[in-house]
Design a protein around this nucleic acid. Structure first.
Length: 929
RNA sequence: GGGCGAAUAGCUCAGGGGUGCAGAGCGCCUGCCUUACAAGCAGGAAGUCGGGGGUUCGAAUCCCUCUUCGCCCACCA
């Protein structure tokens, strides 16, 4: 260790221009500083429930969430993904809405005219299911009530849950503009939906189609492709012989199928024209087993020769592919339907009498038994495949031939695709953009009619006059058929929920009218939602936005993750593993919930929460809120009246710690701002957290106490710095923790915005960074750390008077330490820390950030033998490092190719370590080891 | 069948376009009720960054491959 320059010796503090410190201060025992002021009326522990409600009311009263139409400010708009009115919110909503609130509060503070438009979704099939389930528990079905009464019943449910949802959002602190709350079933919104249907129909983009769609036999409705989701299933592949007519069942064509129960709807068998195994069979006739209905054998290139037997049964009414295959065949084979809408075997001459009325699963079993008995079941193989299920009730979907309304998607998809490819629409994280792109590229027409009662009734009227099959599509009920004047009957069906929610970004703003809101707040900016509805909702909103307003509805799609339990299962009602956000808000406060969820969730990463240990799950947020609260209590109690603004301070009055904390604060501002701009709210939260806890509370507050309590000079300066730094901290944390920051803000002295929610975001300014102060204070921290480590290792109690001697290698470090004499005592919790040339005694050393070493001696308090062991360990470590670095420097390739500063750093390391090693050797020698 | 993502400390996760990057929170160990905070303070242990191979002066980081999980898409019935 390099010896300090004696010329530079005591009184070092004064030599370095620190007006407050003298070496003598450290050797004079003095009374503990007493806090001259009393703490304000803030509880020792942060109690969120005591303040949250009142704070929310103040925001509402002040109208800070209400977006203005007539301001100069640039708008910033988020539309909420409207929660379904099926039930109250779960933790997934907690995550989603907290993120939106962070984004909107941040932009509001940066001076944008921020609009967060809230609302709810009528959620057709989902809500209808909930109410039907409630009815079922009363032993009734919707048919017992009739359409009108049933819808009234749903409304009653919706009014209840819709209100709860809004209360929940408020409890979370969401800064929505409640004056603009919308519901996808509002009258005005319904008008927009009808308008879209009518318009697209006129343009030929909505049409009536006759084809095989996905049908949920439990919900009794058709579903779109997206609503029929795949699930893997362990199934079987049944090999069934279709006997040639007149062969007496002994000879026939063997077909492999997973669905024997559909066989009565077969119209033919097909094989690939190039398949030699079946050469010449074309035109032959086989009988459907059991029903003995004769069907021909045909050829189709759609057949995969490798699969099964290479012979495929064609059931056009019960399989979409078969429908296409049959349609492509030369003859007309018809489309016999042999199942009812609730998936039972139909009362149809094609179905053997014994099977009629059985549901599809029972029927399958019976058929297999019968086939086996008849010797026609050749083989059964286990077969795993993906089967479509209803996304609402998880019943296996039944392909069903029917008439439905469809949207022609290709023309709508193109602009949405271009927007992504041209960079007008970005996804965070980016990989979801590819998912979006792929879906749009492979897009198929959208079945939008649902055989439900809860939803937007399709504005189509069928003519009931004989000989007229005209369909009148209109905004309002036509009195008569527009073609023949005959009587009309409205379509019984309703529209897919998503056919209304795809209009959300503009139908909520009054479209199709040219409202001021629409002019001002469309297009919007950020959409925050889950990746599971990219197809259902995100892509379709983009399509609708371009089609009807010729502009994207938002520029960035931020995809949040999914909240899961410790077994990584998504929260669900059936598993009962969910966490009620309100319960968490009550126990730990909205801010604790918000902080935990934001800090713990990067874009697109799932969040794991354990309902069995809420304390641990929300500890980070709860503990931090309490820390901030208590730091606030200390600071607020010490500010007196209004300290001067920091601009008014004489820079020469600032201590190293002052300059350091100001610089660190500025760095936090820069990093948090950058993080939010880049849609990294977790980074922003963590930056603010570490600044407040690790730097402001752990170091600055400790070191500033003597000045605050009047035992050191410069009280006013310290107060000014404190108020400035704390105020900035509150601003930085406000988007994530709005309640506690707002409450503390209210206690700050001096002139500033009345509400933090409406205050300005701190402006990042490079010139406020003080690199010198940062590096010097880092030395101070390193030295104190070394002292603490040694003190802890040797169990030197704080009550023991110990002379601590620090020898520092570099001038920089010496200056840093000397400047901090006056304040170091408290922060180090040492009885004394002195700087001296004498390096006598035993102790330990630490390497400082600048590569120099510090040796800390603790006088007589230490056992020599113990110290020798310790020093030997140090020595070994040093030698290992030295060998490594020497080998590196001996490597010619490294020296030649690595960047020069890297090589230089290695050299510095080597010389520094070599010096340390020599010093250590001397110490060991001196101690007689 | 195609595609995507993940694998880092006991748990949950950051990081990762080469060189002071081996990190955070929780948990654990030790000592402290120090007049803001025991929801705290100080100190500490703990990971061959999933396995293998490659490129390079240098790989947790880039490439290949394997394994294990998860997700999405898909007309082999």
């Amino acid at each position: 260790v390099k010896r300090p320059d004696p010329a530079d010796a005591s009184p070092r503090g004064q030599a370095d221009g620190d007006p407050h410190a003298t070496l003598a201060d450290f050797h004079e025992p003095k009374p503990r500083p007493q806090s001259p002021m009393t703490l304000p009326d803030l509880a020792t522990k942060y109690d969120p429930s005591a303040i949250e409600r009142a704070i929310y009311d103040r925001w509402i009263e002040a109208g800070v969430f209400t977006a203005q139409v007539d301001t100069e400010r640039e708008p910033y708009v988020i539309v909420i993904p409207p929660p379904n009115v099926t039930s109250v919110l779960h933790m997934g909503h907690g995550l989603n809405n907290t993120l939106q609130d962070v984004f909107i509060r941040y932009r509001r503070m940066t001076g944008r005219e921020a609009l967060w438009l809230p609302g709810t979704d009528h959620a057709g099939i989902a809500t209808q299911n909930i109410v039907e389930r409630a009815l079922a528990s009363e032993g009734r079905r919707r048919q017992d009530l009739g359409r009108e009464q049933f819808v009234e019943r749903v409304w009653a449910h919706v009014r209840e849950t819709g209100g709860s949802i809004i209360d929940q959002l408020k409890a979370l602190g969401c800064s929505c503009d409640w004056s603009r709350t919308r519901f996808t079933f509002d009258d005005a919104y319904s008008t927009a939906v009808r308008r879209v249907f009518v318009h697209l129909h006129r343009e030929g983009l909505v049409y009536r189609g006759h084809r095989v769609i996905h049908w949920c036999p439990r919900c009794l409705t058709s579903l779109s492709d997206e609503e029929a989701e795949f699930r893997e299933r362990d199934d079987h592949l049944y090999y069934i012989r279709y006997p040639f007519v007149g062969s007496g069942d002994r000879d026939g064509a063997v077909v492999a199928t997973t669905r024997p129960e559909t066989m009565f709807g077969d119209v033919c068998l097909v094989y690939h024209p190039d398949d030699d195994r079946f050469a010449g069979l074309r035109g032959a006739t086989v009988e459907i087993p059991l029903s003995k209905v004769p069907i021909p054998i045909e050829q189709s290139t759609a057949v995969e020769r490798e699969f099964g037997t290479g012979m495929l049964k064609v059931t056009p009414a019960h399989d979409a592919n078969d429908f296409d295959i049959a349609a492509a065949l030369p003859g007309d084979y018809g489309t016999p339907a042999i199942m009812t809408d609730d998936a039972r075997m139909a009362d149809d001459p094609r179905v053997p009498k014994a099977l009629r009325g059985l549901d599809r699963d029972e029927a399958r079993q019976r058929i297999l038994d019968l086939l086996k008995a008849a010797g026609l079941l050749v083989k059964v193989d286990p077969y795993g495949h993906a089967v479509r299920h209803c996304y609402r009730c998880h019943t296996v979907v039944e392909p069903r031939l029917s008439d439905q309304w469809f949207v022609k998607m290709r023309p709508l998809a193109q602009p949405a695709l271009d927007a992504y490819r041209d960079g007008k629409l970005t996804f965070v994280p980016d990989r979801w953009g590819k998912v979006y792109e792929h879906w749009l590229t492979e897009i198929r027409d959208w079945n939008i009619s649902r055989q439900l009662w809860w939803g937007h009734r399709i504005p189509a009227w069928y003519c009931e006059a004989d000989g007229c099959d005209h369909i009148t599509v209109a905004m309002e009920p036509p009195g008569a058929c527009e073609q023949c004047g005959g009587p009309v009957r409205q379509d019984d069906d309703v529209l897919d929920t998503w056919f209304s929610s795809w209009l959300w970004p503009f139908a909520t703003m009054g479209w199709p009218d040219r409202t001021p809101d629409l002019a001002r707040f469309y297009p919007g900016h950020t959409l925050v939602t889950g990746p599971d509805i990219i197809f259902f909702w995100v892509a379709r909103m983009v399509m609708a936005g371009y089609y009807f307003l010729d502009e994207r509805p938002f520029d960035t799609v931020y995809l949040n993750g999914i909240v899961r339990d410790p077994q990584h299962r998504a929260f669900s009602k059936s598993l009962g593993n969910g966490i009620d956000p309100l319960e968490v808000v009550e126990s730990y406060g909205a801010d604790a919930l918000r902080f935990t969820i934001v800090a713990g969730a990067g874009a697109g990463t799932d969040v794991i929460m354990d309902r069995t240990d809420l304390d641990a799950t929300f500890a980070a947020g709860r503990n931090f809120a309490n820390k901030l609260w208590n730091a606030g209590r200390l600071i607020l109690s010490q500010l007196g009246d209004a300290p001067p603004p920091i601009d008014a301070l004489d820079p020469s009055d600032l201590t190293l710690a002052d300059r350091w904390i100001l610089s660190r604060c500025q760095r936090a501002v820069q990093e948090a701002t950058l993080a939010l701009e880049r849609f990294r709210p977790n980074d922003a939260a963590n930056v603010a957290y570490h600044f407040v806890w690790d730097e402001l509370a752990d170091w600055y507050l400790e070191q500033v106490k003597p000045r605050l309590y009047g035992s050191a000079k410069g009280t006013a300066v310290a107060q000014a710095i404190l108020v400035s730094v704390f105020e900035t901290s509150l601003r930085l944390l406000h988007p994530v923790m709005p309640f506690i920051t707002e409450e503390l803000w209210a206690h700050l002295p001096g002139e500033r915005a009345a509400l933090l929610a409406g205050a300005e975001w701190p402006r990042p300014e490079d010139e406020l960074i003080d690199e010198m102060a940062e590096s010097e204070f880092a030395l101070v921290q390193a030295i104190i750390g070394a002292v603490r480590t040694i003190r802890a290792e040797y169990r030197v109690p704080l009550s023991t008077e110990v002379r601590t001697v620090v020898t520092i290698a570099s001038d920089t470090a010496r200056r840093g330490v000397a400047a901090e004499h006056a304040t170091i005592e408290r922060l180090a919790k040492l009885s004394e820390l002195a700087v001296d040339e004498a390096t006598a005694g035993v102790g330990g050393h630490a390497v400082l950030p600048d590569g120099s070493a510090v040796f800390v001696a603790l006088g007589d308090a230490i056992d020599v033998a113990q110290e020798c062991t310790r020093l030997r360990g140090e020595m070994e470590r040093l030698e290992r490092q030295l060998t490594e670095v020497a080998a590196k420097l001996a490597n010619e390739q490294f020296v030649a190719r690595a960047p020069s500063d890297v090589v230089e750093r290695e050299r510095e390391k080597e010389s520094s370590w070599r010096e340390q090693s020599e010093t250590l050797a001397a110490k060991l020698h001196a101690l007689g080891c």
